[in-house]
Amino acid sequence: MPRISADLTFADRLGSWRVRWGIGRMNYIVPPGLYAVGRPNSDSPVLVTANYKKSYDSVRSVLAERDCWILVLETYGINVWCAAGKGTFGTEELIRRIGASELTKVVSHRQLVLPVLGAAGVAAHKVKKETGFNIRYAAIRAKDIPQYLDSGMRTAPAMREITFTTWERVVLIPMEFVEALKPTAIAAALLFFITAMLQDRNAGFLAVCGYVGAVAAGAAGTPLLLPWLPGRSFAFKGVLTGSIWSIIFYMLAGGSGWSRFMALAAFMILPAVSAFYALNFTGCTPFTSRSGVKKEMKVALPAMACALLAGIAIAITGMAI
């Protein structure tokens, strides 16, 4: 049985920074199985987590000075929330892992402590039926585990209310950038060549700046300003941050010197680009629903496409005359 420490080392922290930026994300996993923290015995609680190292680290780091078992499930390096949605942090894997680790021989009680956000993948009554283990969904955040254990395994309402603080949003932005990188690079290159061909290189460079700024306004500006942007629709919030960026860009890039066509094209295209990236952020938020995103997309995607095409047509007309 591997015995592990509750202390996070510098290497753990560096690793977690790298994962946020998507560097070597797939290698950042913990072998699934049963681990001992401190000197647990057959009465010690069993905490279940994913084999994404950040999930596992966040659990073990709050267990300093405690004796616990940690059962790590094979989620292929994905965190509890996403893995539960995919079903890898799920009923079958939990039942399999209980068997493989011979948990019934290690502990005398029949209780497992799971993160609340894992519930989307695990059917507690099925696990109970197959293995005899009772599942208790303890808390959403690992930092509440000590309080949960100390209060005789009782969950206070706040421990199962999801939050989306500024910091919780900020840490998601790097991945948004990494995912936007490739399409943005392609679009920027195209934009540069076309504009440089029709006009000149300066114009091409300017167009790329405007575009990249619009992507950033959608993928970073919207998540950051989320609670303060009015409206419920993410596409609408994206149009707002995109419009703010358009105004800033207009002022910084000497917009008063542009032709009327160019200005109009910029104000049509840039907000549409931001709106797309803002809408995509719904995949990372813990309060948007699939049906809601579907409904938004039905209206927003055609609107974005129209704005984009109209903007391009206006820009080309402007350059031609």
Binding site: L117, A119, A120, V122, H125, T282, G283, C284, R290, V293
Partner: peptide, 22 residues
């Protein structure tokens, strides 16, 4: 998210859960 439907022992809950990003 589907957590309630998944854990309802009486199958009294239904929700269309799944991918939620554009």
């Amino acid at each position: 998210c589907g957590a309630c439907a998944k854990n309802c022992p009486a199958a009294a809950l239904h929700v269309d859960s799944g991918v939620g990003c554009a």
